[in-house]
């Protein structure tokens, strides 16, 4: 059982780093392969601290995603809120799964999140270009295991600093 009493420093640090790296893409073509780090953060933190962080945390990160992307505020929040709900509904099952299965689940959840975002944007007149966004979802899912290891390591390191 992880200590959930003092997660805020780790949480804020991870979100700041994820946001910095998320928007650091400098070329339009590279964007297709850029991992969705903020969405990965949401999945990690909800799986890690479900008692503290939930749907409204996911909603707030969605607003941050929209601010960074420059898209309509609220579009990413819908998808991430649904992801948070699904994670919380099956949290014990997902935690029991091996890494490969978890990676598949993360692929599915991020795919749903971005698909809902596209549907929301299409409703306000921003059409999307096919399923190209799934490339970044695939990259993100492939990074789920190293992301987890890095986050656990960083949390331990930050815990020793306190």
């Amino acid at each position: 059982m992880r200590d959930e009493s003092n997660i805020w420093l780790s949480l804020c640090t991870s979100l700041v780093f994820a946001a910095l790296l998320f928007q650091s893409v400098s070329s339009m073509d590279v964007r297709f392969f850029a991992p969705r780090l903020l969405e990965l953060c949401v999945c990690y933190w909800i799986l890690s601290s479900p008692a503290t962080l939930g749907i409204f945390f996911a909603f707030a990160v969605g607003v941050l995603v929209n601010l960074i992307e420059g898209s309509y505020i609220g579009s990413a929040s819908i998808g991430l809120s649904v992801v948070a709900y699904m994670l919380l509904s099956a949290i014990y099952t997902i935690r029991q799964l091996d890494w490969i299965s978890q990676t598949a689940i993360i692929f599915l959840l991020l795919g749903i999140s971005l698909a809902l975002q596209r549907i929301g944007l299409a409703a306000v007149g921003v059409s999307s270009d096919g399923l190209s966004y799934l490339i970044s979802v695939l990259v993100s899912a492939a990074l789920w295991r190293p992301f987890n290891v890095a986050m656990d390591g960083a949390r331990q390191w930050l815990g020793r600093l306190r």
Partner: peptide, 9 residues
């Protein structure tokens, strides 16, 4: 910066 959203330019 470039927007990370693949559908927006």
């Amino acid at each position: 910066a470039v927007s990370p959203d693949v559908n927006r330019h």
